[in-house]
């Protein structure tokens, strides 16, 4: 049964139900793209809620957004962009067969992710210290608008969901680092790095929209 496969394809990483490595690679990538589309719609629910409430209460969103630190939001964006560059470089170096550089770049990507999470925790704690909590726990008196809590609830939900995605991405980076260290990847087979890269860039993509929607309204 496996005779046919051995004849056409003598590579250990190719599963028996694929014609060759190329087809396996393309299939994995297509699967990831379809998953990313479901992710777009997953975040889409929150984006939709945001658009609806902003169209109802434009003044509220302006007043509440002015309370967020634009510079910090911008710095978070730069952090994620840098992590996207290091991720793309990791893929580049595994393609040319430099596993050691790939390992280091995956590590740097992980650290950028950790810095992003740290910056966010700092920002959240900073806001909670003055009583900006999500939902009915909202107790901040600094903005007189009665609907300000709607903006901040959306803020917590959107940055929180995005933060969970960053944490998952960091887990994937750690997993890829272990596998790279064990020599599982080469210029011939690096599918997990490629599709994790797609996921990581998608997380960057979402943040690129969260910056203007949350921090730059006013």
């Amino acid at each position: 049964m496996s005779q046919v496969n051995v004849a056409t394809e003598n590579k250990s990483f190719v599963q028996h139900h694929f014609v060759d490595a190329e087809q396996q690679f393309d299939t994995a990538k297509l699967g990831m793209w379809i998953f990313l589309v479901t992710e777009i719609l997953f975040f889409g629910g929150l984006f939709c809620a945001y658009v609806v409430f902003r169209s109802w209460y434009p003044q509220t969103f302006m007043a509440a957004s002015g309370h967020l630190d634009k510079i910090l939001g911008g710095a978070d964006t730069v952090d994620l962009i840098c992590s996207s560059v290091t991720m793309a470089l990791a893929i580049h170096y595994i393609q040319v067969g430099k596993e050691k550089l790939t390992f280091i770049l995956l590590g740097i990507t992980f650290l950028f992710g950790a810095a992003f999470i740290g910056s966010h925790l700092y920002e959240w704690l900073d806001e909670m210290s003055v009583g900006i909590y999500p939902g009915s726990a909202y107790a901040f008196k600094g903005i007189s608008d009665p609907h300000a809590y709607v903006f901040f609830t959306l803020y917590y939900l959107m940055t929180g969901l995005h933060g969970i995605h960053v944490l998952v991405g960091m887990g994937l980076m750690a997993w890829l680092m272990v596998k790279t260290k064990r020599g599982r990847f080469s210029s011939e087979y690096y599918t997990p790095i490629e599709i994790t890269g797609l996921y990581w860039h998608f997380v960057d993509l979402i943040w690129i929209f969260l910056l203007p929607l949350l921090y730059l309204v006013d």
Partner: peptide, 16 residues
């Protein structure tokens, strides 16, 4: 591409 993205981020915060 990374440098262009960083530049655009600074630009958008500046416009903010």
């Amino acid at each position: 591409i990374g440098a262009i993205l960083v530049f655009l981020t600074i630009l958008t915060v500046f416009f903010g």
